[in-house]
Structures are given as structure tokens and as C-alpha cells.
Design a binder for these strands. Structure first.
Lengths: 199, 199
DNA sequence: GTTCAGATGTTGACATTGCTCACATTGAAG
DNA sequence: CTTCAATGTGAGCAATGTCAACATCTGAAC
């Protein structure tokens, strides 16, 4: 499933990428707890100390994973807006957003866990901002009179909704049957927060 | 600051409570990473194995802390609604909600971290639901035509906004100067999501 | 009041983890 | 071909979560 063949030579060739890939798999399977440096090294078929040539810290490794996550995330959200009428783009993106969270719950959680130190890692920060910007732009178009507030509200809404769904805080609603609710809610949000004087 | 005097007798007397208290302090000071079983035992002045008489797991201990957090949280939100006109209660509670998150960021994060297993621990589940219900009721009153959706949207909004603020994802806005923004946004949300036919 | 059974605490140990240091191996630039 | 920086190895340290065997206390029954 990956491009990483162990290949018994001394130098791995592309350890850094292999590590991030494996870390991602490890995370998706077993959550944050399962994501350890040593286990990671084992997976890639390399000694326990090797990863430290590429990442100062466990935290640095995690930041890289999160950044990769944001890239995936951005891709998904952008894809959702392609070929959609402008005034329906926000709704589509919001839906894609929540669906991403539901499909990769542990990754999503990691991305926003932020014992993570988003501020310190430049790459991570950039990736996160890019994702934010993508949705913010679409949301801002909805309410040209107060674009900033519209963007924040929109982001807060989708993020909060995702979290609620992941925590199964919504009685009777789980990842499996969330789709109709998500659609209804995002549409409702777009309506209420959309252009205030539609007539 | 606590009721826990070490007191050199063999039996502590109220270890369980002391542990949760100390864990809370530890969490507030140093975050999740600083919250370890052994360090905790050290703080309370007890052997490393003693906590296991009261908590099966580290996770169980953490769940107890989270439950305590939800109690605190509920208290804060309820306090905010006391003595406020009914149609302004939601705004007041929403503001209190976000302020709680800003005052206790690490605790708030823990409460919603949910590698936490909210489903399994009954006490925790109850505490979380109670907090949810409190805000949900106020939000539902805002839009009697679709109370369920109003509640979800409201919760998602405040939760999402809190997370964004904690992650400093909002450029130029941090815990220190967040208050006016929070007030403006919650009011805006109440307006847009409030009774659709105010005339 | 003595006794005895839980409940509660202690000691010491095991496996595992993050991380570091001294050393080994390699590929590429001169 | 030599050399050097980049990359990987192995052993080891301190710390952690957890457990089992043992110690001590407390409260209820006699």
C-alpha cells in the first residue's frame, strides 16, 4: 500500500517519507496512543534511533503527520467545490469538511489537538492556514458585508459540528447515519448566515 | 489550596478525592503530558501503586478528571444565565462557555479529547450530557420551530469558536483580547439563528 | 475488647517508551 | 581513490504504566 520496500540495504533511501507514511497508517489504525517512535521504527524496518536523524522529537514527527493531514484535508475540501455553482460552494465545502472528519476521526483529532504546537512549526502552520483560508473565502462570499465574521462563524460551525459527531455527543447520530443531518444543517447555516437581504 | 494534608499516617483517608484534585492542578499547570500516575502519587505523598486502588487505569483517572471538569463547566454556564432576561440567556451562556474554554484551555481540551472514551464511563457521560443539555435548552428556545437543529448549531458554534481561539487560528486574536470578538459573534449568532420572524 | 476480613497502602519488579551517545556504513564531491 | 557529511546501528539511561506479593489499618461481629 506504500512505496516503502524494506530492502535490506543499510541506507533506506527515503526514510523521512516512509516514516510519515507509516505514522499516518499507525495513527489511522490505532490512534495517538499507538503512535510511538519505536513502534514506528519497527514498522519501517529500521533501528529505534534512526527516526531521530529526521525528526528532532516525537512532537516534530507528529507535526509532520498533521501537516500531511492538512494537505489531504485541503485537497478534499477543494475537490468538493470544483464544478459547483458559486453560491452553493460553501455548502458543498462544509459538507466535505465534516465528511473528512468522519472518515478520518483520529487524524482529524490529531490535526486540532494542539498540544501539537501549531505556532512553532512553519510547515504545519502554513498547511493549517491554507485549509482555513479555503473555506473562509467561500464563507466570506456568503456575506460580503461582514466577511470576517462570516468566515469565523462558518469555520466554527463546521469544526464544532465535526467534533460533536466524533464524540457521539448527538444522541442517536453516529458517523454512519450522519449524512442527512449534516446536509440539512449546513444548508440551514448557509441560509441563515448567507446574504442577509436576499430580496 | 486543597483539603488534602499529607499527614503521615498509613491510610490517607480520602485518597480518591485528593487524587482527582491533584490531577486537576497538574493538568492545569502542565497539560496532558504532565499528568502521570507516578507524578500524581508523588504529589499526593503516596506510593506509585496506591492510585490503582481507586482507578483501574490511567484512563479511568483521566475520565474522573474530565467529569470534574464538566461539573465546573456546567456550574459556570448555569451561573451566567442566572438573573438574565430569557431572550438574552443564550448569548450570556455562550459567552460564558467560550470564556471557560479560554480560562482553562488544557482542561477544556481534555474534556473533548475523546481518546477519552466518553461512552464507556457512565459518570463522565452523565456529566457531559448535563452540560450539553444546559446550553441546548437555551438555544432551543431561540428557535421553537426547529429546536433540535438550533441546539446543535449553537453547540457546534460555541465549541468550534472555542477551539479556534485556543489554537490561535484566528490571526491577531488570542485569549487576552478575545472578549469583544466573542461578544460580537455570539450576538450575531443569536440574531441570525434566533426567532426567524421577530416582527 | 478481641478478632478477623476487607479495604487501602507499600515495595519491588517487568516491559516499554523517548531519547542520547559512540560507533558503523554509505554515497557523492573533490 | 580519498574523504566527509549524511544516515543508520546498538547499547544504555531515566521515566513511565502496571502488576503481584506483602503490610497495615478500620470497622463490624462476636
Amino acid at each position: 500500500m506504500s512505496t516503502s520496500e524494506p530492502s535490506d540495504r543499510y541506507h533506506h533511501g527515503d526514510l523521512r517519507r516512509a516514516l510519515v507514511e507509516a505514522a499516518l497508517e499507525l495513527l489511522l489504525e490505532g490512534g495517538t496512543e499507538a503512535l510511538g517512535m519505536r513502534e514506528l521504527a519497527r514498522r519501517v524496518g529500521v533501528s529505534s534511533a534512526a527516526p531521530y536523524r529526521h525528526f528532532r522529537d516525537k512532537q516534530a514527527l507528529i507535526q509532520a503527520v498533521a501537516a500531511a493531514g492538512f494537505a489531504l484535508f485541503l485537497e478534499a475540501v477543494e475537490a468538493a467545490k470544483a464544478g459547483v455553482a458559486v453560491d452553493e460552494q460553501f455548502g458543498a465545502m462544509a459538507e466535505a469538511y465534516v465528511q473528512f472528519a468522519l472518515r478520518y476521526p483520529r487524524l482529524y483529532k490529531l490535526m486540532f489537538s494542539s498540544e501539537l504546537g501549531k505556532f512553532e512549526d512553519k510547515d504545519l502552520r502554513r498547511a493549517a492556514d491554507a485549509a482555513y483560508a479555503s473555506l473562509a473565502v467561500a464563507a466570506a462570499k456568503q456575506d460580503p458585508e461582514a466577511p470576517g465574521e462570516a468566515a469565523i462563524s462558518a469555520w466554527a460551525f463546521v469544526h464544532g459540528l465535526s467534533m460533536l459527531l466524533l464524540d457521539e455527543q448527538l444522541l442517536g447520530v453516529s458517523a454512519a447515519n450522519a449524512e442527512p443531518l449534516v446536509r440539512k444543517l449546513t444548508r440551514r447555516h448557509a441560509q441563515r448566515f448567507g446574504k442577509p437581504h436576499p430580496g
